[in-house]
Structure formats: C-alpha cells, structure tokens
Amino acid sequence: MSLMDELRARLGDLAREINVDKNNKVWIIVDLDKLKNALSLLREDGFDHLSTITGYDDGEKIHLIYHLIRFNDRNSEDVNVITFTDRDKSIAPSILDIYPSALVYEREVFDLLGVRFEGHKGLKRLLLPEDVPEDFHPLRKDFKINAER
C-alpha cells in the first residue's frame, strides 16, 4: 500500500507503529514528545485538514487522537494519529501553531477530560460553566452519573 510506505518513509522513527484496520483506516501511534514533529511533517505533506481531536479515557491513560485528512480529489486519504498521556499529570503539547483550528478542540478536551495543553494561551472551559470545580471532568471513566432510573 503506497500511503503506508510513504508514511513509514516520511515519519521514520517518529512513529512507534503504523497500522491499517479492517475498514482501511490508518492509525499512527506516536509518543507524546514526538507528536508535534510528526504532525508538522504530516501537515507539510498535505494533511492540512484537522477534523477534530478525540479524547478518550480508558481508565489507565488518556488517548488523544488527531484525525487528519489530505484532500486530493477522489484520492483523498485520512489518517489518525494517536498519542497517550498520563492520567494523573495529563499534559500534552498544544498544536495551535500547526493547526489553528485546534483552538476549540483543545479547549473541549481540556474541559471534558482535563488534559492541559502546554502553549495554549487562554485554555479554559468550552462547554461547561466556568464556576464548576477544577477537577470536574465528566468524560473520565471514574466520573459516574446516575442516569439509569
């Protein structure tokens, strides 16, 4: 597969793993300290559309998934860059200088999962009111709601 070869050659050591799943989606696993380098390389290669940043807490660590698209008529490709951050410290580098649209997405992840993006000025809650407690991050797995009546 040409996209895989291209990514392997381009990213080299930056990517820990590059996988393709059954639905032909490419998942690139990178370490947290190499995230910015990897993303700026991908950005240079034409992956200039950041769909969103998904934050997901699996109970041990927080996954951050950056969903990118390279638009090229009918041959457009999408890749997903995954990185992990510690659950207690939960710090990640901000990618605002690479993708300006990350402004709202980083605020959303900070709001709901409590990941601090270093270098993001004005990082504050996006959806929840500003007067909720500091450690109030509802999408974490230890946050329980009494939904089922």
């Binding site: 959303e108 709901l112 959806l127 929840l128 509802p138 999408l139 946050f143 709601i145 009494n146 939904a147 009546r149």
Partner: peptide, 10 residues
C-alpha cells in the same frame, strides 16, 4: 428523572 449533571457535546 434524576439525571443530575448534563455533560457531553454541544
């Protein structure tokens, strides 16, 4: 009806 905390995407 006792969903107390509204959380999620807007």
């Amino acid at each position: 009806m006792s969903v107390k905390i509204p959380i999620g995407p807007i």
